[in-house]
Amino acid sequence: MSPARDLLLFGIFSAAVLTMPVWLTPLGAGYPDLLQKFAIYGLFATGFNLLFGLTGYLSFGHAAFLGVGSYTAVWTFKLLGMNPIPAAIMAVVTSGLFALAIGYVSLRRSGIYFSILTLAFAQMSYNLAYSVL
């Protein structure tokens, strides 16, 4: 495929997805929660694709960053009121700092060692979330 055709298909797909709440409401399927989950998991998949597709590093700890961002957003909602802008900013900053700490340790390894380290950090994050938080 040519780059112009790829860009055209991307534009059509983006327009269709962004207007889904409008044209799916008469059908009874314009669920904002479902569309938000599509967007969140789409960003999650894009991040994984960037990491694995461009670098070849298989990360099993990718969901830990999603979890840290989610917990941060919820705590920001609780402490600062129901304003989504500070929640999103705090979630990105906290997830970025968490990724910096894990990346500092994990990126010194390659191959299966990188994958095992990210799996270990993901399991530690999972256990922390279900035990303390």
Rank of each mutant, 00 (worst) to 15 (best):
I102N: 02
T19F: 13
T19L: 15
L128Y: 10
L119S: 04
S125I: 07
Y130I: 14
I116M: 15
S59A: 08
A4L: 12
L50S: 01
V74L: 12
T94R: 02
V92R: 00
Y130L: 04
A122H: 12
F98T: 04
G28K: 09
V74N: 03
R5W: 14
P86G: 07
L119M: 13
P26Q: 03
R5N: 11
F77L: 13
K37N: 08
I112Q: 06
P26G: 08
T76Y: 06
L9G: 05
G42M: 11
M90N: 06
P3I: 15
L119W: 14
S2F: 07
F98A: 15
W75S: 01
L50Y: 08
L7W: 14
A15T: 12
T55Y: 05
L58R: 00
L100D: 15
V93K: 01
P84V: 02
L133P: 00
G69E: 05
L27D: 01
M124G: 13
M1K: 05
M1I: 07
Y126I: 09
F98L: 11
R108D: 03
G61F: 07
F98S: 09
T55R: 00
Q123N: 01
V22D: 05
F52Y: 09
L97T: 00
L79T: 07
F48I: 09
A45V: 07
Y41D: 02
Y130A: 02
